[in-house]
Simulated assay, not measured.
Amino acid sequence: MDLADDLITHPYDVYERLRTSSPVHRIKGMDGQPAWLVTRYDDVRAALADPRLSLDKTNAREGCYRGLSLPPALDANLLNMDPPDHTRLRRLVGRAFTPRRINQLRAPIRDTTNRLLDALGPHGTTDLISAYAAPLPITVICELLGVPESHRPDFRSWTDALIAPDPSRPQAAKEAIVAMLRFLGDLLDHKRRQPADDLLSDLIAVRDGEGEQLTEDELMSLAFLILFAGYENTVQLIGNAVLALLQHSDQMQALRQDPTRIPVAVEEFARYEGPALLAIRRFPREDVTIGDVEIPAGETVLLSLAAANRDPDRFADPDRLDLDRDAAGHMALGHGIHYCLGAPLARVETEIAVAALLARFDVLELTQGEVHWRPSLRARGLIELPVSYRATLPSR
């Protein structure tokens, strides 16, 4: 079953048909290779926590979809690992995402949002992705890691080339990988010579110290993953949340009147239009049965987070944005041991970004009827978000 075009333009219509007809479908993966697609909430949630489903590509059968191909120096990351290596690396990097550290970032995040909104002026038109939703997470994650400001636009372009390759430039993704390798290698060398108070310096100290250590490939791969995921998930979560409000003016007005509801609303934004259509591919270590379908060992399993989050057996009237809904249990940021490590940071950034935008502009409208999504079967993000805005009230 080839669903590529429809899953980009109308994913929820496709997922509704698939979810209704069967729990699991045989499809073509992003590279044309076969895979199994799981769409129902209970099946997806169980599979995300099933230790029989491996992320390690050495468990993949030849001829099946294996995901993005990266060199070893970028591939030794948490998205390709099972316990015990996954447990070891997650414990080491998890120190950067504790509740205490995330709360310490709230003030810098607010400063960044205000600076970006100041640059827009009191009225006009803009693309909110390039002017706001993208530079905010790039700034936050790069400052957390210690990436110099001069390199941040480059990193964004490299990430975009990997998430949604341009068919007219087939070499762009390979060029981005080469550039990332060179950049991260130089950055790590610099941090070794001049350590600072940042996450990369901390990880280097672990790599070069005694006790529980990282390999050089694991160090480079962790730096890559934190930068990549820290940007990708958050820019899409912010952009999708703002689009949802622009398309539901009554809900936007309700949040303006009571901004204390925004943290709860972020959970509904994530459920309704999350940053990923699919979880990272998995490979059964043994034959497994999902729903009533037996999947042979080594074949690729794709778990649709988007379909699960719109499953009417779990969420009533799931295609309706309802900011009063209890969206607990959504899987926009995963579930189980591979739950997104940066989820607390993504939530805080989205909460602050939405609150600042609504407080600053009391007129905010789309300037075109149709929006354009990035041509990706995995990520769910906007190419641009053109809006007109006006602040008739004093900045708050």
Rank of each mutant, 00 (worst) to 15 (best):
M1H: 10
D2S: 08
L3Q: 02
D6G: 07
P11C: 14
Y12T: 13
Y12P: 00
D13G: 08
R26Y: 14
K28R: 14
D31Y: 05
Q33A: 15
Q33I: 00
A35T: 03
A35V: 12
A35D: 08
W36L: 04
W36V: 02
T39L: 10
R40W: 04
R40H: 10
L48S: 07
L48R: 03
A49R: 13
L53K: 05
L55V: 02
T58F: 01
T58K: 14
R61H: 09
E62L: 12
G67H: 08
S69V: 14
L70H: 06
L70G: 10
P71A: 07
A73N: 13
D75K: 02
A76K: 14
P83A: 14
P84F: 12
L89C: 04
V93D: 10
R95E: 09
A96Y: 04
F97E: 04
R101I: 09
Q104S: 10
L105I: 04
R106G: 04
P108W: 09
I109K: 05
T113Q: 05
L117M: 05
D118W: 02
L120I: 02
I129L: 15
A133V: 06
L136F: 06
I138R: 05
C142N: 05
E143S: 14
L144S: 02
G146P: 02
V147A: 02
S150G: 04
R152I: 02
R156E: 11
T159F: 03
D160A: 11
L162I: 13
A164V: 01
P170R: 08
A173F: 03
A176C: 06
V178F: 10
V178Y: 06
D186N: 11
D186H: 13
K191N: 08
R192Q: 04
Q194P: 00
A196M: 04
D197E: 15
L200R: 01
L200C: 14
D202C: 07
I204N: 10
V206F: 10
G209D: 03
T215G: 14
T215A: 01
D217Q: 10
E218T: 12
E218H: 09
L219E: 11
G230D: 06
T234M: 05
A241K: 07
V242K: 07
L245Y: 08
L246M: 07
H248M: 00
Q251V: 00
M252W: 06
M252D: 03
Q253A: 14
A254G: 11
A254D: 11
L255D: 01
R256C: 11
P259Y: 05
R261G: 07
V266P: 01
A270K: 02
Y272V: 09
F283T: 03
F283I: 09
D287K: 14
T289F: 09
T289V: 15
V293R: 09
V293Q: 09
E294I: 08
I295R: 07
L305E: 03
D313I: 03
D313T: 13
A316G: 06
P318G: 01
L321S: 00
D322Y: 02
D324E: 13
G329L: 01
G329N: 05
M331A: 01
L333R: 00
H335P: 04
P344N: 08
A346E: 04
A346L: 11
T350V: 09
E351W: 08
E351T: 13
I352T: 05
R360Y: 07
L364D: 06
T367G: 13
G369Q: 15
V371G: 01
H372S: 12
R378C: 01
I383W: 00
E384Q: 12
E384F: 00
V387I: 07
S388C: 13
T392Q: 12
S395L: 12
S395I: 13
